[in-house]
Nucleic acid binder design. Structure first.
Length: 264
DNA sequence: ATGGTAGAAGGTCTA
């Protein structure tokens, strides 16, 4: 089964080319970030027409996440259970039940950007990461296959950024951010893309500004983290880099591209 | 040091 994550930077501004990608890539499960709309404005029927079950955790103007699955879903959770008071829509989770394989729990993550750092936004980011770690710990105790996929807003290593020096003071690359990410990873999770391509340059985001795409000034911040039971079922992973280029759909691309993993 | 781009909302913030 193919599980994808895609920060779409507004679902409605980009719907034709997002649907084009769905028709081409045909993920079994997809988590979307920055849908930038309330639940009622999410174009659910477009996805239902394509055979997806739809779960949305929307928000006006900012953030907003969704989970789409060709297989039945259950146990839908909106927001991290560990962060009751959080008003920002940044997490959605569901148990995905394929017909011919064991279930996989999928969490869709839109981790706070955290800039400028230091400051209250950075504190919020670190607190959010702490809650995500606690949640991952809880899920690990269940000893089941799960994938935590999304826009982590974390550049894990120097090889994941075109110019590490230029990003040294950025909330996405600060040592404290990377340490918090490692803490989650070191609970025993597997970075899906790194598993497929241990040392490759695999950017997933290019800024709209300064011709970042044309110069390939990218960063790798969209990740799929696999539980041990999911890692056992790992086949391959990839980045749909072509989605960053203009396409026939006449609509501008997101600044992120889809990243996906295939499990048995 | 600044402003460069994009989106939603709406006369500004977030990324």
């Amino acid at each position: 089964m193919k599980i994808a994550t895609f920060n779409v930077n507004s679902i409605n501004a980009r719907l034709p080319r997002i649907l084009e990608w769905f028709d081409k890539a045909t993920p079994d499960v997809a988590v979307l970030q920055e849908i930038k709309c309330i639940d009622e404005k999410f174009p659910a029927s477009e996805f239902e027409d394509r055979g997806y079950n739809v779960a949305v955790h929307g928000q006006k103007t900012y953030n907003g996440v969704a989970l789409l699955s060709k297989f039945p879903i259950d146990d839908i959770t909106r927001g991290l259970p560990e962060s009751d008071g959080d008003e920002q829509s940044r997490y959605i989770e569901a148990l995905v039940m394929p017909k011919d394989a064991d279930p996989v729990r999928v969490g869709g993550i839109y981790l706070p950007n955290g800039n400028p750092a230091p400051g209250p936004k950075y504190d919020y980011k670190l607190a959010w990461m702490k809650r995500l770690k606690a949640h991952a710990q809880k899920l690990l105790e269940l000893e089941e296959a799960f994938v935590l996929a999304g826009d982590y807003n974390v550049i894990p290593q120097a090889e994941d950024v075109h110019d590490p020096k230029a990003w040294a003071d950025d909330a996405l690359f600060l040592p404290q951010t990377r340490a918090a990410f490692r803490e989650i990873l070191n609970l025993g999770l597997t970075d899906g893309l790194r598993q497929a391509d241990p040392h490759g340059v695999r950017y997933t985001f290019w800024d709209y500004q300064r011709g970042a795409w044309e110069k390939d000034n990218g960063i790798r911040i969209d990740h799929l983290l696999l539980s041990p039971q999911a890692a056992d079922r790992f086949i391959t992973a990839g980045v749909d880099r072509n989605e960053r280029s203009p396409s026939g759909s006449d609509v501008k691309p997101s600044d992120h591209v889809p990243v996906w993993v295939e499990l048995r």
